[in-house]
Design a protein around this nucleic acid. Sequence first.
DNA 1: CTCCGAACGGAATCGCGTGTCAGTTTCGGA
DNA 2: TCCGAAACTGACACGCGATTCCGTTCGGAG
Lengths: 206, 206
Amino acid sequence: MSAEPVSRAERKKQELRREIIDAAFDCFAERGYHATGIADVATRLGIGHGTFYRYFQNKRDIVDHVVDDLVARITGALTAENAPDAVSTLDEYREQSARIGEALGRIFGEDPRVPRLLLFEAPGIDRAMADRVLDLFDLAAGLTAAYLTHGVELGYLRADLDVGNTARAINGMILGTAISSLRTPEAQVAQSEALRRLMYDGIAAR
Amino acid sequence: MSAEPVSRAERKKQELRREIIDAAFDCFAERGYHATGIADVATRLGIGHGTFYRYFQNKRDIVDHVVDDLVARITGALTAENAPDAVSTLDEYREQSARIGEALGRIFGEDPRVPRLLLFEAPGIDRAMADRVLDLFDLAAGLTAAYLTHGVELGYLRADLDVGNTARAINGMILGTAISSLRTPEAQVAQSEALRRLMYDGIAAR
DNA sequence: CTCCGAACGGAATCGCGTGTCAGTTTCGGA
DNA sequence: TCCGAAACTGACACGCGATTCCGTTCGGAG
């Protein structure tokens, strides 16, 4: 982008940095944060664990980078190509939510290590990390709320909708889907469909 | 119940055992499992940490007992005085779910340490502990599914309801409420109402 | 009051994992 | 081919916390 001193060696360095982050993700997600030592991460890459400290301050430092990565991927999927004001009818909205659901399903369902790290490991590391996870939930709730608000304004959603709390409820269902997929990844699609059905039709007999 | 050799000293012993479990719960929930040492738990009670090992095998052992306690409290609230077949109309069902919601709200909302320990600390301890948490989710899903099945059979719920997956979606919303209550405990009631509204009316305009 | 076994406390032990550092290797330029 | 700088390595030095162990205290039976 700006600077251009990418001197071959510099590129190698960035590449190793990436690999360390990926290896750390693997270890943390598989064995758990507390159970993996720096040595484990290093061994997985076939480097000495001293080298690790040339790239990251300490163990706590790297898990932040790992989570940065995940958060970026998720917010990317959430915002990309899906502006709230791109739709104007209930049916279009339903299609859009299916699209978003698919994107999330791809991230969470395709690799169980993602939800495992983000939902099971991260919150137990630290107060600070737990707060990051809660921040992510808040961010997602804000996003969902924006969609709902848009729908209320255009009139295809109930006028008396409690936008904020309904958004949290919907995100809760998504969370539930992500967690279920830890045990039964194959049920994910049906789960996602049931979720949408609940949103649009409720559960009551007509 | 059965035996009667409760020799005063024996009662004292059981009492201390209880106190240790409670103190451990406090410490784990406040500082986190990995951050609290046995010494912290012992100090909080004013006993030597050697004494701890007269009551529990090791650190891992006690957290199991702490979780046992929580699980018992939750399943108790879930099953007590709320049999699925106690209702026969949609309105009654709605009242019953409100009652269950209140019971859960009392447990999760009244003391944020409960959801914090159960949802944020426990899953990161161990695979085994993570499995216990997932088991609890499954149990809850089964329970919710029983309510839904009953409603479908009596005809006040949609005949084509995907019972299992809808149950998981509903539990997800409850989960979302519990997590929200970590940051905004006061919103819990509104959250719970929005959840029920979503279940019964959906989000679409009429 | 005396004695004995159980309960207790906390100093000492032990193992483990983080983070450091001095010696070694690699690499690019001259 | 050689040199210096930068990167890499892994043995080592901690510190920390779980668990053990033994001298001391307590409680209640005789």
